[in-house]
Structure formats: C-alpha cells, structure tokens
C-alpha cells in the first residue's frame, strides 16, 4: 500500500494575534498537528502598545484545506483576524529579504557583481574574496538570484521569509 498526497496551491495568510507567550507555538503547533504546510513564516510586534503581532504564513494546500486552515486559525482564542491575501488576487504586495554571501576571485567574482546589479541587489559587505548581497523582492526573484549565485561561489544564505500586505487604502 502507498500513501497518497494531494496537490495544492500557494496562499499567503496575514494573521493578527495577541502578542503574548505561547501564541506562535500555538499556531505552528496547529499546522504540524493537522498536517498543514508552512513554506514561510514571519512574525513581529506591530502595534504601538506592543499588544498585537502580525504573522505572515505562506502555506500550500487544496482550496478546502486552505479554508480549513483559516477556520482553525480563527477559532484560536488569541487570534484576532485571519486574512487570505490571495483572495485579493494579484492585489497584494509580497517582499522578502535575503542576505547572500558569495566567495571567489576572478571572473566568477565579476559575474556575481554584474548579476547583482541586474537584480538590484545591494552590496552590504565586501572583502577581497567575498561579497554579501542584500536582495529584496518577491520569493521568486529571490529564488532566481540565489540559483544564479550558486554558479558564482555561493557560500551562505539567510532569508527573512515573506511579509505581505494588500494593495489599496484599506487596513486588514
């Protein structure tokens, strides 16, 4: 017997929660306990009185599962609001930052710098044998940049994960 899995689609969820101990564990635990995917998760305090945090989760699943994820999140006591940014179609902005360290000399080093320029990545640290690039963009762009850097002496990557916000004047 083989175990079957189902194909899914990518959704970006913005969740506002009480900024208190254990909330993140509750949310990530919900994803593991119910077998939902987390592709990326970011969290930070967003209110002036430090009472609220915003969590952005990129997840993947068939539409009924995404609907379940939202319903399950909404019933957690410390969760204020859950918004599926995909419901706004293309009308949301997503960004993530990566710090990409590349080491090498000669032609590879020049090629790395040239590509960084094309991607509008900034050089934030340099030695004679290395660069650290800072690149900002949606996950695809960051993925592509990192893939190219693999050919140019990539040694280390750090990524923030996705933050996202809906376009237009309204708040979440």
């Amino acid at each position: 017997m083989k175990i079957k899995t189902e194909a899914g689609e990518r959704h970006v969820l913005a969740i506002t929660v009480d900024n208190e101990a254990g909330v993140l564990a509750k949310i990530t635990g919900l994803f593991t306990a119910r077998g939902y995917n987390i592709e990326s998760l970011t969290v930070a305090d967003i209110s002036s009185d430090h009472a609220l945090s915003r969590i952005t989760i990129v997840t993947n699943g068939p539409p009924p599962v995404i609907d379940q994820i939202i319903a399950q999140l909404e019933r957690l006591v410390p969760v204020h609001k859950v918004v599926d940014l995909n419901d706004a179609g293309e009308a949301h902005v997503e960004r993530e930052i990566a710090l990409v360290k590349v080491a090498g000399t000669g032609e590879k080093r020049i090629e790395a710098l040239r590509l960084a320029d094309v991607f509008r990545a900034k050089v934030v640290d340099t030695t004679l044998t290395s660069f650290i690039f800072e690149i900002t963009g949606n996950s695809d762009k960051v993925d592509r940049f990192i893939a190219l850097m693999r050919e140019c002496g990539l040694v280390e990557v750090g990524r923030t994960g996705v933050v996202a916000i809906a376009r237009g004047p309204e708040a979440l």
């Binding site: 009924p64 379940q68 319903a71 909404e74 019933r75």
Partner: peptide
C-alpha cells in the same frame, strides 16, 4: 457553533 466544523470533512 464552530465554523471550522463546517466543510471540514463533507462539503
């Protein structure tokens, strides 16, 4: 009473 029970298993 629990919205997450609805459409969880049977649409």
């Amino acid at each position: 009473i629990d919205r997450s029970s609805i459409n969880k298993i049977v649409p």
